[in-house]
Design a protein around this nucleic acid. Structure first.
Lengths: 183, 183
DNA sequence: TTTCTTTTAAAAAGGGTATTTAAACCTTTA
DNA sequence: TAAAGGTTTAAATACCCTTTTTAAAAGAAA
């Protein structure tokens, strides 16, 4: 079975109280902050390679992590840096994984038109002239799959890694049963 | 003492579960519904003269009422009309008064520049070239007063009528003490 | 050839969209 | 010149947008 590769993890966390973003922007090297564009301050870390959005409320969003442990490492790094700047931050931020994006290879070229008909148009969106992937909204687990003619797929919206495993297992079963995959 | 006139009462309420706004828009005479402009359906009542915003969530907002009893009359009218259309509505919507707007006359012309200095620039905004009224944010009760050179004023943000009475009493006392009102 | 656009999910928090109302001053429009 | 509309304030409702990240692959633009 082709491996499932997590390519992006998005998480949110509360790291403290009211933060003075203007001060942080001035003291934190590399911080991007343009209130007119976006209310959050954008801080990109090189290792783990992530982008952390810091908000006035003390909440943050971490994007781009390749694993859940990396999310924790990234957020803790930001918290430590803010602590050095004497900003009011917690010792243990409460991190919540919000979205895990993963890819895998179904190892079979796919006839997306036939798959669209088979999965039912109520859960499928397929407009090759707009986007080459077929969008399938799975109910359980509640995730969205992007299927490509090459057999590769992307799973987005998962809250935990097991959701992805279940989704991949389900779609393989559905396609195989419908005879839409080289078995 | 010049009377306080309530000119607008805004209230919110939950009147039921998920509502099909599209259906309501089609069946309710006079309903305005344009999803691209605003997510709520706008329904204007002639008596009491109000505008009720109905949302998909089953929550509504009533604006324009001249009194608190009128808010109840208006919302109940809407609920009754929706019930006739077989929409899922409650028997007793839980109405919450969110904002009461009132006007009164301080019966003295006011020197807004002097008042701005006296009340303290941290709570006052006065830019006559932009807007003729002086904006005063009172802490207790937490309301905002718009003072005009004519002596007339507007009080917004009150949650109950007593807030307005207290606010008027307070501003009169503050201005009189500072000798900024003809007593 | 490289880059960008298309699509999807998710959070954060502002801004805009719309509704109502008074005050009074300015500008625009018939 | 009169009438209309814009200026400001509060409040709830709930959507859209903004930004960040990431893969897939097709088409277009540079």
């Amino acid at each position: 079975m082709a491996e499932i590769i997590v390519v992006n993890v998005v998480a949110s966390a509360s790291i403290g109280k009211e933060l003075m973003l203007q001060d942080i922007a001035f003291q934190l090297e590399g911080a991007e902050y343009d209130q007119d564009r976006f209310p959050g301050l954008i801080y990109k870390l090189a290792e783990p390679k992530t982008a952390v959005l810091i908000f006035r409320s003390g909440k943050v969003v971490c994007t781009g992590a390749r694993s859940i442990p990396d999310v924790h490492v990234a957020i803790n790094k930001v918290v430590d840096e803010l602590r050095v700047l004497d900003m009011p931050v917690k010792d243990e931020p409460d991190i919540v994984i919000q979205n895990i994006v993963a890819t895998t290879n179904l190892e079979s070229t796919l006839n997306l038109i036939q798959i669209a008909m088979s999965l039912g148009f109520e859960n499928v969106e397929y407009e090759p002239e707009a986007f080459p992937g077929l969008v399938y909204r799975m109910d359980d687990p509640k995730v969205v799959l992007l299927l490509f003619g090459s057999g590769k797929m992307v799973c987005v919206g998962a809250r935990e890694v097991n959701n992805i495993k279940d989704a991949v297992r389900n779609i393989k079963e559905e396609l195989s049963t419908a005879g839409l995959m080289r078995t």
